[in-house]
Amino acid sequence: MKPDLELYDYWPYENRPKITWPGGARVAFWVAPNIEFYEINPPINPKRSPWPRPHPDVNLYSNRDYGNRVGHWRMMEVMDKYGVRGSISLSVALIEHHPEIIKECVDRNWEFFSHGIYNTRYSYDMDEAQERAIMEDSIETVMKATGQRISGYLAPALTHTERTMDLLAEYQFLYTCDLFQDDQPQPVKVKKGRLISMPYSLEINDIIVYNSYLATPRRYGQMIKDQFDQLYEEGKESGTVMCIPLHAYAVGHPHRMAAFEEALDYITSKEGVWVTTAREIAEYYYENCYDTCAADIAARKGG
């Protein structure tokens, strides 16, 4: 083990080169539905058990499945209403299990990125060939089903190895959602090629808010609005990124939809908000910001 994988340089959140998003926007806003498949009887990873109870953990398994059968469709309807396209963090095997969901998302021109094959298979202790196989499977399977070459990665259940970022760059991924050090994208230091960290969120992620912070739905709605207000204010100085990561098995319950809808209504009604997808943010960043930011980071040497 190492104390730090040295994936990025220290870069104070002050006096950075100004980012101006398309149309002069202050906040690039994206929504990341995690569309996941949890297996009822997955093999056991030495580092982490997929279910708290002996298999079959029918109650929790069915709780997760609620997202696909029920919650997804409510979430999608609300996103349609406010013109928000999803950037999907996809359990890639869901392409085989539930092609109906994939088709609806393709029809809406939503973006797909990889969240591993299943959310019950963890990267811990994988050798290089195994981790490559996950990435290659992801690229090929999504390409075949949707015509999209995936640009992004959120490791399955946020499980990594020391080489994850280098491999992503080698496979020409544009961004990783696995790093939470900033509210703006930042170049990731990889062996070869380029990669950026895309601000995702473990703070207004519905799972964290509902299952770790144990918030009420209305409190969740308020947290989203408060986060937006702050990033909107700071975005005057230099453009920020705001992501709402969702899981239909959490946000998609009837008693939780209204607060989420109110928050989307609030954000999309503001001027100066670029409602977009992660890939579009990454492409814009590489085109307009990467070089100046990389140069600034190098020149400041952490100061």
Binding site: N45, P46, E96, D125, M126, Q130, A133
Partner: peptide
Amino acid sequence: MTVAKEYLEYPMRRY
């Protein structure tokens, strides 16, 4: 320690 070969096999990956 590495994960077993079966860890990347998906017998129930189906419709």
